[in-house]
Each structure stands twice: as structure tokens, then as C-alpha cells.
Design a protein around this nucleic acid. Structure first.
Length: 531
RNA sequence: GCCCCCAUCGUCUAGCGGCCUAGGACGGAGCCCUCUCAAGGCUCAAACAGGGAUUCGAAUUCCCUUGGGGGCACCA
């Protein structure tokens, strides 16, 4: 059943500890916008809002993927917004890597910094006036205040609190300041920030689509900074204001935002904005399941040919299909048929199937999905994707040859770059096998040379060297020689392909062609005679 | 330390009070197929963290414990 058709009270969402008003689903959910997603097919507006402070990793990719799936599932819009208000951590090129990563994955966004859209601009540093306006609005409504405390004083307060084993929070010094006094200090040129005036009494309740209702005691909450002294907003203000201005209906983000969730809903409510539906995705854990990936583990994974960064995955020969299938299932449980393309994911996507528990990264599963999707690709498509890897490895790629070779290696590839060890020799004029490899198992070099010689004579005598023409006589040769098939074919394989592991022998012979095959066998015989 | 979240095979998960002798996938083991390597087919091992409570009946609801994770910035 599609999520938007779900109407029964027996569905999963009701297992959570919702307050009684939320529990009765027979009532129209007008007061609870998050319910839209559950009961109506309204097109959503979702945003993926990364900050350009580093590389695009799996966590971001999955968040973007779920955003995309929800948008496409409902016929809504998927928006990319760059949260670049932290100028200290800004990394040049990070935005481009993000965009390239999204496009490579096939997660096309409908509005974004490089394509524009009706609610632009889509970079927060280009939207400063908006945040200042709302910060001022908040102050005027009594929900925020100017704060003149220096970072040094704040740090001292923090240390003191830690020493006394109290939770570290702003001590509220400027909260009591008269607005008129604050304004004159600002006029006098004093540096300031704007802080949110968190309610001190009562509780804050908010609903997470996946986790149900969450409650915080307001006395545990902090007066967070909304506008920094450089005039730029913090995430808290900027994201809320932009989500409002951009008419975002559903916010999907990482669970690292759960702790500031009450702050965010309080900002939204203080301004009287419609509250979006929220969902906080679990984090990815390192393969052992104990904590997040560290720098060291990331480096170790890379040594193994794996990575948590999208850009690396591209270079390592992973396919978008494989990566997508892998990450979509970290947090989405499907009962069976877990191999899916992006379009199939859109068809099947259902928020009720998302899980809130953290997921350990499992690279062998990535390999499995990548190999599976490679095998699903049409030959022409696969060949086109293989070509850059051959080119990068300095092989002169002949397209006809490539098209013939691709079917032979398709089911052997885990990653695209596996094509080099499997099929590089097809594009070389000669091969250079290790002499010892030419010797058949349990045979002497002389015996091996004899086998090679017989094979040479036989192949040279064929009117044309095709799979069909070569196989019967070669099998007969095995019979007559009293050797086993691995010995004979093994010698030939090494002689012709230069390696002990290769695609099937007869198909390979046909593709390499009579002249090269004979030359390679001839050369092998020479080598064997010197041993 | 404080706040919040999470808890089914090693891992990702199905499970919506009786369809559960707990299903699938990856990984592992074995067999079959086979010119190497794969792919494919078949089979096997492998889990409800613990304790209470509710109920005729609990993997499923509630509480506690334990374990794991996230956060506690003029970072996002």
C-alpha cells in the first residue's frame, strides 16, 4: 500500500507514543502539517541543504536521496540550497563536488544555485538581508534579544559550569537588558549577536515523522545565537527562515539536528510560520558499528578500494546504481526484492518503511549491489562506462573490440575498473606472461612446450579461428594427449592472454584473432624452450 | 556530567497482539554447474539485550536496567 493511501489506524505511525490528540487519525489533521505526508498526496517541497565545508559523503548522499524520492513520489520539488554562512570553514570547490555528486547519482534538483528557481538565490550568503529582517522581527516580538557578551567571557562561563558539573549554557546576562539600552550600545558601535529567548518554563513538544512526539523541558534549553557578530546568521535562523521563504513542507535532515530540534520549532512558532513536517535520519556508523567513521578508518577503507566519499566512489569504479541501491537500504527495510533502480525506488518509496536506528556501513554489500547492477546494464551502456577506465589506464580502445569484450567480462566485474585486469590484454599487440605461468600444472616445461606446439599446429590449420571451430579439436587434443583439460587450456590461456585468470578461452581466442593468437602461442613455445 | 534518540542473525533489515518452528539480503560454510575467474542454482549455520508489567496470548504495548549513538559553539 502506498503511503499516501494509508488511512487505517493500524499503520505503523500509531505505534509511537503520540499524545491523544494525534492518535486519532479519523480527525482531519489540519493542525498537524506533518500528517499531510501520511494522508494526502500533496506535492512536497523538500530541500537538501549541505554546507560547503568538506567532501560529499554517504550520509549526505542518502539524505539527498530520500529528499529526491519523496519529491518525485509526490510530484513535488527537490531543492538544493547551499548553507555557506560559516566563512571560517568554507572550502572552495566543495559546492561543485556536491553538485557533481548529486548529478552523478542522478538526483536532479529542480531549484538550486546553478540553475536558479522562483525562490532564489540558493546560497545563504546571498540572502543576508532576509535573515537580518527576521532577526529584527524576533527581537521586536520579544522572542530574541541583543547580546554583547564577548567570546572570552562566554568561554569562562562555560569552564566554570563544567567545573561545577553543570550543563553548559548561556547564563542569560543580556537577556534582561532593556531593548532601548541595547539599541544605544549598538548605535555606539558595540559588537553584538542576537540570541533566541527560549521559554524558561514548560515544555516544548515536536513531532518527528519517524520517531513520533518528542518532549523537552524548556529549562534544559539554551538561548542560541541566531545572528553572529559578523552579521551572518547561524544555521538555526538561516535554515528556518529559508525553509519558510522557500515554502519547504518537509524537512529531512540528519539526527545530529535532533538536539536543536526544539530550538528550531520554537523559532518557527515564534514567528507564526507554518511548521514543516520533520524527519531526522539516523547516522551511519563505521563497519564495526561502534561510532562514526574516523579519519583513520576512512583511510583504511580507501586502501581496500572503498570510500565514504562520493567522488572517491566514482573514481573507484562504482556505479550510481550500485551506490544508490546500497545507501537507500541503510535505513529502509524492504521485505524482499532489494535490487532497485532509482525509478523503482521512487515507485516503492514509503516513509513508513524508514527506520530510526543507526546503520553500520557494510562495504561488501556495496560490492554486491555494484556487481549486480553492472550485470543488469545493457552491453552498449556498460561498454561506454568501461571505456574511460581503459583510456585512463593508457589502453588504445577500439570500440568494436570493446563491444565484443564487454559481454565476456560483464559478470566478472565488481567495479568498473576491474575491466583492466580482466580485459586489458585484448587491447595490446603482445602479451608478456611470466614464464613460470606457462608451465602446465604437474608438467615440465618441455611437456608444456609440446602441448603448446600441438595446439599451434591445430589452430594454424583451421580455416578460421572461431569459438565454434576451435573448441572441438582442442577438446580432442586434450583427449589424445592424456592430459586434463585444465593443463591444456591453462597453457593456452596463459600463452594467449598473458594471465592465469581470464575470460573464457574460446571466446577470447576468437576476439583476439588468428594472427595474434598464433604469434602469442609461438612466442610462448620459445619461452618454454628456454626453461 | 546533562539532554535527546535507538535496540530482531556478524551487518542491513521484514515484523503493525495470534499468520513466527521469526522471513529476505550481504557476508560465511557446503554441494551442483564449470577451461581459469566469475556468474548462476540448491542447502546449511546464524537473532528477538535482560528484568518486570498489561493480555487468554507479546519480537510486537508500557516501565526499569543495560548497551549503543547523537548533541551540549558567534560550526553546520
Amino acid at each position: 500500500m502506498a503511503w499516501w493511501k494509508a488511512s487505517s489506524c493500524a499503520t505503523r505511525r500509531w505505534k509511537y507514543n503520540l499524545s491523544p490528540g494525534l492518535r486519532r487519525c479519523s480527525q482531519p489533521g489540519l493542525h498537524f502539517p506533518w500528517r499531510n505526508i501520511l494522508d494526502s498526496p500533496t506535492p512536497v517541497r523538500v530541500r537538501f541543504a549541505p554546507s560547503p565545508t568538506g567532501r560529499m559523503h554517504l550520509g549526505s548522499a542518502r539524505t539527498a536521496l530520500y529528499d529526491y524520492l519523496l519529491a518525485r513520489r509526490t510530484g513535488g520539488k527537490f531543492i538544493l540550497r547551499i548553507e555557506d554562512t560559516d566563512r571560517k570553514r568554507f572550502v572552495a570547490g566543495a559546492e561543485q563536488e556536491l553538485i557533481d555528486g548529486l548529478r552523478w547519482l542522478g538526483l536532479e534538483f529542480d531549484e538550486g544555485p546553478d540553475i536558479g528557481g522562483p525562490y532564489g538565490p540558493y546560497r545563504q550568503t546571498e540572502r543576508q538581508s532576509i535573515y537580518q529582517k527576521w532577526a529584527t522581527e524576533l527581537v521586536e516580538r520579544g522572542h530574541a534579544y541583543y547580546c554583547f557578551c564577548t567570546p572570552e567571557r562566554l568561554e569562562k562561563v562555560r569552564q566554570e559550569q563544567q567545573k561545577q558539573k553543570l550543563s553548559t549554557r548561556y547564563d542569560g546576562t543580556c537577556r534582561a537588558l532593556q531593548l532601548s539600552e541595547a539599541r544605544s550600545r549598538i548605535a555606539a558601535g558595540e559588537k553584538f549577536v542576537v540570541r533566541f529567548k527560549m521559554p524558561r518554563e514548560g515544555q516544548t513538544r515536536a513531532v518527528d515523522m519517524m520517531r513520533g512526539e518528542i518532549t523537552w523541558d524548556n529549562k534544559e534549553l539554551d538561548d542560541a545565537v541566531l545572528l553572529k557578530s559578523d552579521g551572518l546568521p547561524t544555521y538555526h535562523l538561516a535554515a528556518m527562515a529559508d525553509d519558510y521563504e522557500m515554502k519547504i513542507t518537509h524537512v529531512i535532515r540528519g539526527s545530529e539536528w535532533l538536539s536543536t530540534f526544539p530550538l528550531h520549532v520554537n523559532i518557527v512558532r515564534a514567528l507564526g510560520w507554518p511548521e514543516p513536517a520533520w524527519m531526522h535520519l539516523s547516522v551511519f556508523l563505521k563497519p564495526s558499528g561502534k561510532g562514526k567513521m574516523s579519519k583513520r578508518e576512512t583511510a583504511e577503507a580507501l586502501k581496500d578500494g572503498h570510500s565514504i566519499f562520493v567522488k572517491d566512489l566514482i573514481d573507484l569504479g562504482y556505479t550510481p546504481e550500485g551506490v544508490l541501491n546500497w545507501i537507500v537500504l541503510m535505513g529502509w527495510g524492504v521485505a524482499e526484492d532489494d535490487v532497485m533502480t532509482l525509478d523503482q525506488m521512487v515507485e516503492r518509496f514509503d516513509i513508513h518503511h524508514l527506520t530510526a536506528s543507526p546503520a553500520a556501513i557494510n562495504f561488501s554489500k556495496l560490492d554486491h549491489f555494484n556487481g549486480t547492477h553492472i550485470r543488469l546494464l545493457p552491453i552498449e551502456d556498460l561498454a561506454a562506462r568501461l571505456k574511460p577506465f581503459f583510456v585512463a589506464a593508457n589502453y588504445a580502445v577500439d570500440n568494436d573490440m570493446l563491444l565484443k569484450v564487454t559481454p565476456l567480462i560483464r559478470e566478472r566485474l565488481v567495479t568498473l575498473d576491474d575491466c583492466i585486469p580482466f580485459a586489458g590484454f585484448f587491447f595490446n599487440d603482445t602479451v608478456d606472461p611470466a614464464p613460470a605461468d606457462l608451465v602446465g600444472k604437474d608438467l615440465t616445461p618441455a611437456q608444456s612446450a609440446e602441448v603448446a606446439h600441438k595446439a599451434y599446429t591445430l589452430l594454424a590449420g583451421l580455416p578460421e579461428l572461431t569459438h565454434a571451430a576451435a573448441e572441438p579439436p582442442l577438446r580432442q587434443l586434450v583427449e589424445e594427449s592424456g592430459l586434463n583439460i585444465n593443463q591444456v587450456f591453462g597453457i593456452l590461456r596463459v600463452a594467449v592472454t598473458g594471465q592465469k585468470v581470464s575470460p573464457p578461452l574460446f571466446e577470447s581466442l576468437e576476439i583476439i584473432g588468428r594472427a595474434k593468437v598464433l604469434a602469442r602461442v609461438q612466442k610462448a613455445i620459445q619461452v618454454l624452450k628456454t626453461l
